[in-house]
Design a protein around this nucleic acid. Structure first.
Length: 565
RNA sequence: CGGAGUGUAGCGCAGCCUGGUUAGCGCACCUGGUUUGGGACCAGGGGGUCGAAGGUUCGAAUCCUUUCACUCCGACCA
C-alpha cells in the first residue's frame, strides 16, 4: 500500500473528551471515528487491525474444533419471550417493530438464537459434542457508553456455545476454551490473567474471565503474589483470609456501653483504643426482588469492606440499592448503632466473623454499643461477604494478595441446562430418553481487543501495535520524495517486499521528514525503514517502534534483515 | 436512571453576560512559489441554514420556551 493513496486522516489534536490512550490514539491515528454515542466507524487502518484480530480468533477456534456460523443480528422477540429474558434483560436490549408490527431485538448475545438453531436439528447424543460460534456485531444499549471502543453500544464480539451430553464433557470443553482463549491473547502479545469470576444470578458451577492487565481497567482483580500458586480472581468473587490483628488477651465484660454520637468504625476504634478487627460493621441495603423490596443487613468485620456482588448473591436480590435513615427507622434500626441482636429484617454475617469473640457491635439503641459480643454458637446465616483487599492472605497458599486493574476481554461460562430447558432443546441419550443439552458459553470481545492492545502498548507518541495485531509490519519512509535516488530505492525495496508477501506500506507522500516520522510513531507500525541521507553512503535506517531505537543498515542487507524479523 | 455541562467551518475554540454592518482565530483544505532528517515558510483562496423548532424585537449566534444530540461524574454493565 502507498501512503499517498491511503485514507488515514491523522490529526495533531486529541478528540475533545477522550481520556484513555487507546481512545485518543485510535482517533488521532485515523483508525476509528465516532458516529454516535458508543458507535464507531472503522477506517481502513482500523478495519485492518480488526480483521487481523478476527482472523486470529477464528484460526485458534477452528483449530480447537469449533465451527463458525453467523446468526441474524436482528432476532425475533418471540425467542426472547420463550426464554423469559425479554422482560428481564432490561433497557439494554434494543427493541423495535417492523412494518407488520412484529417485535424484534438487536442481538446483545445469542443464547436463544443458537439454541434455536440446534434444537430439533441435533437429536442424538451421537452428534455431540458440538461447539458453534460466530464473530458478529452485537448491540447493547448501554446506559453510559464511554472510553471509545472499550465500552461501546455496538461492538464486534465472538460468542460461542457448546452442547454436550453430560457435565463432564462440558467441563472438558470449558478447559479447552480457556486454553484456546489464552492462546489468542498470547498471540496478540497481551499480558493477561485468567481469573475466577462471579457466576451471578444464573448460578452455574464456574465462570472465568480473561483479564488483560491495564492501569485504566475498570475491574479490580486479586492476584496471589506467589507466582507458583497462581490464584487470581475478580474482586467480585475473590476469596481471601484476613488474619488482622488478633490478640487473645483482650477481655471484655459483656454489656451495653454508652458511646454518644460515635457512629463510624474509625471513631469507635479510637474511643475503645482497639483495632478495627474487634468491631462489627453493619451495612444496610435495600434489596430489590421480583415482587418486593426490603431492607437487608450485612455484617462484616470492622477492618473489612462489604463486597456488593457477594452481598447480592447471598440474599438473591436482583439489585441492591442504598437505603436511608428513615427507611431504617421504619424497621426499628438506628444508623450507626446496628448490631446483630433481635433484628426484624433479614441479615447475613460474613464468614470471617464466625465464632469470633469478644467483639464490639451496635447496641440497637441510640448512642449505645454492645461490648463483648460473641459469635460462638450463633445460628446466623453466614456467607462470604467481605471484599478481598491488598495484603489479605491467599486461600490456597497463604501468601500475600495483590490488587491490580484489568480489562475484561473474555468470559467463559459453564452454563448447564438453563437455556436448553427453558427453550425445550433436548437430545436422545443412549437409553433413548430425552435430555436437555448441557451447555457452555464463551465470549471474547474482538473490537474491544483493538483498544486493549493499545492500552497495553503505547507511549506518549502513539500506538505500538504488536506483531500479530499490526495493520502493516513495515513502513518505508522516503525522506525526500524529490530525491530521485531515495525515491528509486524506496520503490524498489517496496516492490521486493510486496512480492515476498511482506505486509509493507510505502510513505511516498510529498511531506517533510518530521511529518512522516510523526505519523509512523502515531500510527505505530512495528518497524520503519528510513530511506534518506544515509543512502549516499550506502545505508538506510531501521527504526523499532517499540523502543524507538534506530540503527544503520547497509542498503544491500536491509531486505534480508527485515525478512528475519 | 440521578447530577452537571456542551452544541458556532473537517477538528479544536472565541464571540453570547450587556442584541446592532459582510460571525472571527488556530490547525486542516485548495492554488502558486520556496523548502525536504523531526509535524516548514511566503502570497493568494474556498468553506458556516451559529444543533433544530417556536417566540420576543425594527433587528437574534446573543434574550425566552420547547426539543434533539453529544460529553462528564455517579448508578448499571460482557
Amino acid at each position: 500500500m502507498r501512503f499517498s493513496k491511503l485514507f488515514v486522516p491523522t490529526t495533531k489534536e486529541a478528540p475533545k473528551d477522550a481520556v484513555l490512550p487507546s481512545h485518543i490514539y485510535l482517533v488521532r491515528g485515523g483508525f476509528i471515528s465516532q458516529i454516535g454515542s458508543g458507535i464507531y466507524n472503522f477506517l481502513p487502518l482500523g478495519k485492518l487491525v480488526l480483521d487481523r484480530i478476527r482472523s486470529i480468533v477464528k484460526e485458534e477456534l477452528d483449530r480447537a474444533g469449533a465451527q463458525e456460523v453467523q446468526l441474524g443480528f436482528v432476532t425475533p422477540a418471540s425467542l426472547w419471550e420463550e426464554s423469559g429474558r425479554y422482560q428481564k434483560f432490561g433497557k439494554e436490549l434494543l427493541r423495535f417493530k417492523d412494518r407488520k408490527n412484529n417485535e424484534f431485538v438487536l442481538g446483545p448475545t445469542h443464547e436463544e438464537a443458537m439454541v434455536d438453531l440446534v434444537r430439533n436439528r441435533v437429536k442424538s447424543y451421537k452428534a455431540l459434542p458440538l461447539n458453534l460460534y460466530q464473530i458478529n456485531t452485537k448491540f447493547r444499549d448501554e446506559a453510559r457508553p464511554r472510553y471509545g471502543l472499550l465500552r461501546g453500544r455496538e461492538f464486534l464480539m465472538k460468542d460461542g456455545y457448546s452442547f454436550h451430553a453430560d457435565e463432564e464433557d462440558m467441563k472438558r470443553e470449558f478447559a479447552l476454551m480457556e486454553q484456546t482463549y489464552s492462546k489468542i491473547l498470547d498471540r496478540l502479545g497481551l499480558d493477561f490473567r485468567v481469573v475466577e469470576a462471579d457466576s451471578g444470578a444464573i448460578g452455574g458451577s464456574g465462570s472465568r474471565e480473561l483479564m488483560v492487565l491495564a492501569d485504566n481497567g475498570e475491574d479490580d482483580i486479586v492476584i496471589c503474589s506467589n507466582e507458583s500458586c497462581g490464584y487470581a480472581a475478580n474482586i467480585e468473587a475473590a476469596k481471601s483470609l484476613n488474619e488482622g490483628i488478633v490478640d487473645d488477651e483482650v477481655e471484655m465484660t459483656p454489656g451495653l456501653f454508652a458511646t454518644p454520637d460515635i457512629k463510624t468504625i474509625e471513631d469507635l476504634a479510637d474511643f475503645f483504643k482497639i483495632p478495627a478487627s474487634y468491631l462489627v460493621k453493619a451495612v444496610a441495603k435495600k434489596a430489590i426482588y421480583d415482587d418486593r423490596e426490603e431492607v437487608v443487613l450485612f455484617f462484616v468485620r470492622g477492618d473489612d469492606e462489604l463486597q456488593e456482588v457477594k452481598a447480592q448473591n447471598a440474599c438473591g436480590a436482583l439489585e441492591l440499592v442504598d437505603t436511608d435513615e428513615s427507611e431504617l427507622e421504619a424497621v426499628g434500626l438506628i444508623a450507626g448503632f446496628i448490631g446483630p441482636m433481635e433484628i426484624k429484617v433479614p441479615f447475613y454475617v460474613d464468614e470471617r466473623l464466625r465464632d469470633r469473640e469478644p467483639m464490639i457491635c451496635g447496641g440497637n439503641q441510640k448512642d449505645y454499643h454492645f461490648v463483648g459480643f460473641s459469635f460462638k454458637d450463633k445460628a446466623f446465616e453466614y456467607a462470604d461477604l467481605a471484599s478481598a483487599k491488598a495484603g489479605d492472605q491467599c486461600v490456597k497458599c497463604g501468601c500475600e494478595l495483590e490488587i491490580t486493574k484489568g480489562i475484561e476481554v473474555g468470559h467463559i461460562f459453564q452454563l448447564g441446562d438453563g437455556y436448553s430447558k427453558a427453550l425445550n432443546a433436548t437430545f436422545l441419550d443412549q437409553n433413548g430418553k430425552a435430555q436437555p443439552f448441557i451447555m457452555g458459553t464463551y465470549g471474547i470481545g474482538v473490537s474491544r481487543l483493538v483498544a486493549v492492545v493499545i492500552e497495553q502498548h503505547h507511549d506518549e507518541k502513539g500506538c505500538k501495535w504488536t506483531w500479530e495485531s499490526a495493520p502493516y509490519h513495515f513502513d518505508i519512509i522516503i525522506s525526500n520524495i524529490k530525491d530521485e535516488e531515495q525515491s528509486a530505492f524506496g520503490e524498489a525495496l517496496y516492490q521486493q517486499m510486496s512480492e515476498a508477501g511482506m505486509r509493507v506500506i510505502l510513505d511516498d507522500r510529498s511531506e517533510r521528514f518530521g511529518f512522516k516520522m510523526g505519523d509512523f510513531e502515531l500510527i505505530g507500525f512495528p518497524y520503519a525503514v528510513i530511506v534518506g541521507k544515509g543512502l549516499k553512503e550506502g545505508t538506510v535506517e531501521l527504526v523499532d517502534r517499540a523502543t524507538l531505537q534506530k540503527r544503520s543498515v547497509p542498503k544491500d542487507e536491509i531486505f534480508q534483515q527485515l525478512k528475519e524479523l
